[in-house]
């Protein structure tokens, strides 16, 4: 049988017009669901972006509390010989304190009562390649350093992950709930529209319409509802992302948030595809269930 696209589309549009209120409900739920899902995608993309930029950090710091400058020299000398290392700087207590004062020169309260002895001397190591940071940290641990006396990017990444994983799982959980809710609501909308038209469907069947011929307009209806809800939500998500990146650049200049972290066309496509999937599955299920009964 030929698939008459326009015939089914027009039939679906007529259905939507006849069940406008239920259609609006279904579209709204899909919108909310896809919006939450999209925000989840945004958050995880930005966290990945931040992690990525931290990973590009090439510095490893080794702190040596209570060490003499000779001990500092000895370590610096040794580390210079490692192949991964590009540059080594020794930082004395005085220098560390001076750096701190310089960094927070706007907030002198922070260091007014501070003694420079709280700043341990350290050796700052610049690497040739950020991917070798973990190896270098490992080597330093063999030299007697503990995790607490070292500072390298993986620590920041682990800390970020441990905090953000809860946020991300929470968002995924919420998304899942909203996904289920919108499948149910769309299938309910379709079911009501079927119930209102069950006599008609029986007539269609009597005239010799196959199940798929009866079903297709309803599936189109669900598809349209999913498409509209998800389309609006997808654009909202991309817009929110734009606002967020803009805000972060102005108000959080230290946090490496980049607009490259989110691939807008990809997000659009994924969100719309999920929304359409919800609509199609929801409507297909409810019509099929009804057709089995008659």
């Amino acid at each position: 049988m030929r698939f008459n696209f326009w015939f089914f589309l027009v039939e679906a549009l007529k259905n939507v017009r006849l069940n406008l209120l239920m259609s609006i409900t279904a579209v709204t739920t899909t919108f909310i669901c896809i919006l939450v899902f999209g925000l989840g995608l945004l958050v995880s993309a930005h966290i990945q972006g931040v992690i990525g930029s931290v990973r590009q950090d090439v510095s490893v710091e080794a702190f040596m509390p209570n060490a003499s400058s000779d001990q500092l020299d000895a370590l610096a000398q040794k580390v210079r010989g490692w192949p991964e290392v590009a540059k080594v700087t020794e930082v004395s207590q005085e220098q560390a304190f001076a750096e701190f004062k310089d960094k927070f020169k706007d907030q002198p309260d922070l260091y007014r009562d501070l003694d420079q002895s709280v700043f341990p001397p350290s050796v700052q190591i610049q690497l040739k390649d950020p991917s070798e940071a973990n190896d270098v940290a490992e080597k330093l641990k063999q030299e007697g350093f503990t995790e607490d006396n070292l500072s390298y990017p993986q620590q920041t990444i682990d800390r970020l992950n441990s905090v953000t994983s809860y946020v991300i799982w929470g968002l995924y959980g919420a998304t899942l709930l909203f996904l289920i809710a919108s499948v149910l609501l769309i299938s309910n909308a379709i079911r009501l529209s079927i119930f209102a038209r069950r006599k008609e469907i029986e007539v269609m069947k009597l005239v010799g319409a196959s199940d798929s011929f009866v079903r297709t307009p309803f599936v189109f209806e669900g598809l349209l509802q999913g498409l509209v809800g998800a389309g609006l939500a997808a654009f909202a998500v991309v817009w929110i992302n734009y606002l967020f990146v803009d805000w972060a650049h102005n108000d959080l200049p230290y946090v490496p948030i980049s607009s490259d972290a989110v691939n807008a066309p990809f997000v659009l496509v994924v969100l719309v595809a999920v929304g359409v999937g919800i609509g199609v599955i929801g409507s297909f299920l409810s019509v099929t269930r009804f057709l089995r009964k008659i």
Binding site: M1, V207, A209
Partner: peptide, 11 residues
Amino acid sequence: AYAMEVTGQRR
């Protein structure tokens, strides 16, 4: 027309 569309006849 619906009875004909059902059987997939040409428009």
